[in-house]
Amino acid sequence: MGKPPFERVVSLHGAVVLRVCRAVLGAHDAEDAWSETFLSALKAYPELPADAKVQAWLVTIAHRKAIDIVRARQRQALPMDELPPRESPLGIPGGGHPEVLDAVGQLPPKQRQAVAYHYLAGLPYKDVSELLGVTPEAARRAGADGVKALRAALAETPRPALKGTSR
């Protein structure tokens, strides 16, 4: 038996990729990044080795698409892997805790990416470091600093229901 139908890839990984795109780009651009990611993935899918880790592959594509989108938005050239801080973060339409997304958006880009790729997508720090072009130690530090900063930011504005499940 070969690779599953691509439809199955979308149903298995669509939610995780969306979460990563929202954390990295914010809710506003996340849907464009999601669409571009799965279009690219569909195109390349027949050539993907059968034993490849599909989720990590998708996150790698999403990372590149996020950079493309930021570049297109900025017009002027940015360093390849830099995301700007988000000046006016938008909430998650229709649900969730916008303030969590806001807090993620206030992190420096490397921390935001490290938190998204490691904690949301489950990539090992070795893979995160390759995506970000930094050492594994630097990736690990960015992730840990990001989580620490997030916790501090959220503690400043006390709110209900940050523990446990959201619904």
Binding site: G95, H97, L120, V147, L162, G164, T165, S166
Partner: peptide, 10 residues
Amino acid sequence: GLFAGLTEPA
């Protein structure tokens, strides 16, 4: 549950 609010899309 730091990311509880991010886990479920609308």
